[in-house]
Amino acid sequence: MIENIAAYLDHVVSQGILSLSPPGWGGALLVGLLHTITIVSGAYIIAIVLGILGATGKIYGGPLIRDWLSVYTTLIRAVPELVLILILFYAVPKIINDLLVASGLARIGFSPTVVGMLVLGVVIGAYMTEIFRGAIIAVSRGQTEAALAFGMSTYHRAVRITLPQMLANALPGMANLWLSATKDTALLAVIGFNELTLVTKQAAGSTRAFFTFFIASGCLYLLVSVLSTQLFAWAERRARRGAPEIRRGKV
C-alpha cells in the first residue's frame, strides 16, 4: 500500500504534472489560489462595510430603513448563492453603469475580479449584517451609557466604545463567514472565473489525473482554512484582552 503510494508520488513528480513550471500545473494552481484569496479578501472588505452600515441601520434606523434591510438580508439568505451570483453577475455592473450614465459620467468596464468581489461582497454582506447586529446588541448597555455620560459624540461612541467591543462578539461569526466565503468563491468557477477550483478542473481534465489535482487543491483550501482559523483565534484573543473572563466565573 505504502509502496504503491510512494511509487505514485514519485511518478507524479518525475512526470512533473504538479511541478511549478509550465509543463506541470503546480504554478497554475498557485495562481488560481492567489485569485481565490484576492477575490475573497475584496469581497470580505465590501461585506464588512455593508455589514456595519446594515447593522447600524437595522438597530438605529427608522422603520423604512429597517424594512428595506430586512428585505435585503432575508432575500439574500433564502436564495441559493449560485443563483444570486448569476443574477448579480449581470445586474451589478449594469446598475452601476446605469447610475453613472444617469449622473452624466462615462460607463466603466469591470474586470472579472472586481465583478467577483462585488457579487460575493453583496451576498456575504447580508450574513455580515446579521452577525454585526447580534454583536452590537450584545455590547453591554452600561458601556454606551458611560460613554454618553462622558459627553462623547455619536461618532466617538461608535469608534471608541461600540465597535471595539462589538468586534470580540462578532469575531467567531466573522471567522465562520470567512471560511464559507473562501468556499463560496468556488461557485464563481461555474460562471468561468479563473480561480482555484476551475484551474483544478482544467488541470485534471487535460492530464486525466483527477485525484491528484482535486486532492492537491483540496489541501490548498484546507491550508487556507487552518491558517485563517488560527489567525481569527488570535484576533479574538486580542479583541477580548482586558475583558473579564466569564467562562471561569472570574467576573
Partner: peptide, 10 residues
Amino acid sequence: GTPLLLQLWL
C-alpha cells in the same frame, strides 16, 4: 474545509 464543488467534481 474544502468547497462542495471541489468534492463533487472529485
